[in-house]
Amino acid sequence: MGDTRQMEPIYEKSFQIRSYEVDMAGRVRPTALLNYLQEAAGDHARLLGVAVRDLIPRGFTWVLSRMHLRLLGTASSREELRVRTWPSSREGRFSCREFEVTAADGRPMALASASFAVLDLATRRPVVIGERLPSYPLLPRRAVEDDFATLPRLAEAETELSFRVGWGELDINRHVNNVVYAAWALETVPAAVAQKCLLADLEIGYRAEALYGETVVARCRQESGGESPVFIHQIVRAGDGVELTRLVSRWRRAG
């Protein structure tokens, strides 16, 4: 796996925003940012010798358990964004990874913290990371201070949308990619909010996986309005009602 003394705790990667990654107002979509984070994390894991492709032959894989994204600025098509990422902790069944995103001119764009687990592919259960993975350098500094307490469960929805899982939404683990859940959830936000506000903060708790051909239902309820709307989201499997994801989105007035 290499000499960990030669491994860098911080990895940096630049992304140019593509025209298909911006919204109607020309601003980079939150889901595009989430994809950048996922790509940078995967590249760093590969350098550390613990990428998904390293683990699958051994019967394991990484899965995302929690994500907290805090959006600080906006950027447009063709602008360049720089992602800095590092693992901050590795305890028991979870390893936290941090992210900082800046524009080319240094403007802060986003902060994020994520918690990952290593899944046994045979049992579909998380394992103790220290028993299965080699050591890698940690930088014990959080980008977003979050102890990842359980997110609130949605009791009654105001909005519901159904989606069928297609091939294009699956990842190398053969289940729905984590960014897709965020896209489904954000679709349930009322047009009046989505068109006049910017997403400021998104928390996601992943609870179960969705597979090809299944139908899922994205549910949403607004908890507060005014200048800073807050929504509680939930995504469930239509067939048996199993809860797949809980989310909380917070918004701020654009401009």
Rank of each mutant, 00 (worst) to 15 (best):
R5S: 08
E145I: 12
V230I: 13
L244E: 03
A45Y: 08
G166W: 01
D147Q: 14
R29G: 05
L111C: 06
Y181I: 05
E8M: 14
A41E: 09
V144P: 07
E131W: 07
E79P: 03
W251I: 09
H175T: 04
V22H: 04
L121V: 02
W184K: 02
G239S: 14
F60D: 01
S88F: 08
Q16A: 10
W251K: 13
G73D: 15
V180W: 14
Q222V: 10
A41T: 12
I56M: 12
T31R: 09
R84C: 13
T61G: 15
R246N: 04
G255L: 06
I204L: 15
T215K: 09
A191Y: 06
L64D: 00
K196N: 14
D43M: 12
S224V: 08
N177G: 05
W184N: 00
E98C: 07
H44T: 11
I10M: 09
L69T: 02
Q234R: 09
R253H: 09
R141P: 00
E80G: 04
G106S: 07
P30R: 09
T150Y: 04
R107W: 03
L198H: 07
R27P: 00
H44V: 11
F116C: 15
V22P: 02
L133E: 08
H175P: 04
E21R: 00
R174T: 01
R207D: 10
R124T: 07
S76G: 12
D3T: 11
P87T: 09
V217A: 05
I17D: 04
T61E: 13
E98K: 11
S14L: 03
S162Y: 10
S89A: 15
S113D: 02
R219D: 01
N35R: 14
G166L: 02
